[in-house]
C-alpha cells in the first residue's frame, strides 16, 4: 500500500491554526486522489480537544501528548516525527509555511533524505502520484513547478490563504492514536525558555483575510489610527511598508514586502503606498487589491484592481464610515 498523506496540525492558543485547516482540506482531496488515508500530526500538551476536533478532518490523528512537546523545539519535534516517518513511509507531508514549519521541515527533509518545496502557491498531482508544487522565484517575478524526484515523503509548505478552508465539519470519523514521546535528552541542545506573544485580537499578517497597509503617505505614526479604525470594521490586520518600518512608525513584524512578510489575503488595501517593487513582491498574490493614493501616476495602481485617486486623510474616514454601514457594524 502506498504511504499516507500527512498534514502537520499547528496550533496556537488552544486553536488549530487556520493555515493547518486549509491544508487538511487540500490534504483530503490529495489523499482521495492517491487513494491513501489522511493523517493529522498533533504535538502538544493538554490538547485532547484539538485531537478530537482533528478527527472530523483526518482519518487518523497521531497525537503526542507530553510536556516535552508543549512548546515547539526543533530538535525534539524533528526527532519524533522523523522516527515515525521512517517507520510509516508517508508519501506526502503538507504544512503551512509558518515560522515554525520553516524552522522544522528543512531539518526534517534532511533527516529523511528527501526534498522540500517552500512557500507553495499551488499543489497538483500528476497521474503517477507525483506532487507538482508551484512556488515563487525572484519575489514572485517568476513561478516554478517543482517535483521531488528522489526521496519520500514529498514535503510541501504552503503559503497561508492559498487553499480555502474545508467544508463545515462533519461528524468525527477519524481515530486518535496516542504516541509516547521518547527523546534522548543528550541530543537536545536547544532549550526554549520563553514564548512571548502579546495578546492580539487580530490574525497575523500572513493569515489575515483582509489587510490594510499604510505607506509613507500616512505621514506620521499617529495617523495609523485611521487604518486601525478601518481594520476594526473589516476585521483586518494592519500592515506597513519598509519606509514606514524604517522610520520607526510601526514594528518590523508589520512589514509587508521583500524583507518583510509575504501575504496572500482575499482583500488588500494599499494606502499611501507608492508601489516600490520590494513592496509589491510581498503582496502581489493578494486576490483583490485596492490602492488609495493622491498621485494618479503612482506605480501601485499597476498592481491594483481598484485605484482610488484621492487624499487618504479625506478618503479613509469616509471609507470606514461606508464600510460600517455596508457591513452592518454601524
Amino acid at each position: 500500500m502506498a504511504g499516507a498523506v500527512w498534514v502537520f496540525a499547528e496550533h496556537q492558543e488552544g486553536k488549530i491554526r487556520k493555515t493547518s485547516l486549509e491544508l487538511l482540506g487540500k490534504g483530503r482531496q490529495v489523499a482521495g486522489e492517491v487513494g491513501a488515508p489522511l493523517i493529522a500530526m498533533l504535538l502538544g500538551s493538554g490538547v485532547d480537544a484539538l485531537a478530537q476536533e482533528l478527527t472530523t478532518y483526518a482519518d487518523t490523528v497521531y497525537h503526542w501528548d507530553d510536556p516535552a512537546v508543549a512548546l515547539y523545539n526543533s530538535e525534539i519535534y524533528c526527532q519524533i516525527i522523523a522516527e515515525l516517518a521512517h517507520k510509516e513511509q508517508p508519501q506526502i507531508f503538507l504544512a503551512g509555511a509558518t515560522f515554525l514549519a520553516r524552522d522544522l521541515f528543512p531539518r526534517l527533509a534532511g533527516r529523511l533524505k528527501t526534498g522540500i518545496a517552500v512557500d507553495c502557491l499551488n499543489l497538483e498531482l500528476e497521474e503517477d502520484g507525483l506532487l507538482v508544487a508551484r512556488r515563487p522565484l525572484f519575489g514572485g517575478k517568476a513561478l516554478a513547478d517543482v517535483v521531488c524526484r528522489q526521496g519520500r515523503p514529498q514535503i510541501a509548505l504552503v503559503r497561508p490563504n492559498t487553499f480555502s478552508l474545508p467544508d463545515a465539519q462533519g461528524p468525527a470519523h477519524g481515530t486518535v492514536v496516542r504516541l509516547p514521546v521518547g527523546v534522548d535528552p543528550a541530543h537536545v541542545k536547544i532549550q526554549v525558555l520563553e514564548v512571548s506573544r502579546p495578546p492580539k485580537e487580530r490574525l497575523d499578517l500572513t493569515e489575515a483575510e483582509v489587510i490594510v497597509t499604510g505607506g509613507r503617505g500616512m505621514k506620521a505614526a499617529e495617523n495609523f489610527r485611521l487604518l486601525e479604525e478601518l481594520a476594526d470594521v473589516l476585521n483586518a490586520t494592519v500592515g506597513a511598508t519598509r519606509g514606514v518600518v524604517d522610520s520607526g512608525w510601526r514594528p518590523h513584524g508589520d512589514q509587508v514586502g521583500k524583507s518583510g512578510k509575504t501575504v496572500s489575503p482575499k482583500l488588500y488595501f494599499a494606502v499611501g503606498v507608492s508601489g516600490a517593487i520590494h513592496h509589491v513582491m510581498g503582496m502581489d498574490t493578494s486576490k483583490v487589491v485596492v490602492a488609495i493614493n493622491k498621485d494618479v501616476q503612482a506605480p501601485i495602481f499597476q498592481y491594483a484592481d481598484y485605484g482610488v485617486v484621492g487624499d487618504l486623510f479625506e478618503v479613509l474616514p469616509l471609507l470606514t464610515k461606508e464600510m460600517k454601514q455596508g457591513t452592518g457594524k454601524g
Partner: peptide, 28 residues
Amino acid sequence: SKEEILRYHRHPQRPAVTMLQGEAADIV
C-alpha cells in the same frame, strides 16, 4: 538533487485597474 524544476511560468497578470476619480464621497 532531490527536487527538479519541471517548468517556469510568468506571474499571472492582474486585469486592468479600474480607476476611480472625483469627489471623495462618491468614489468611496
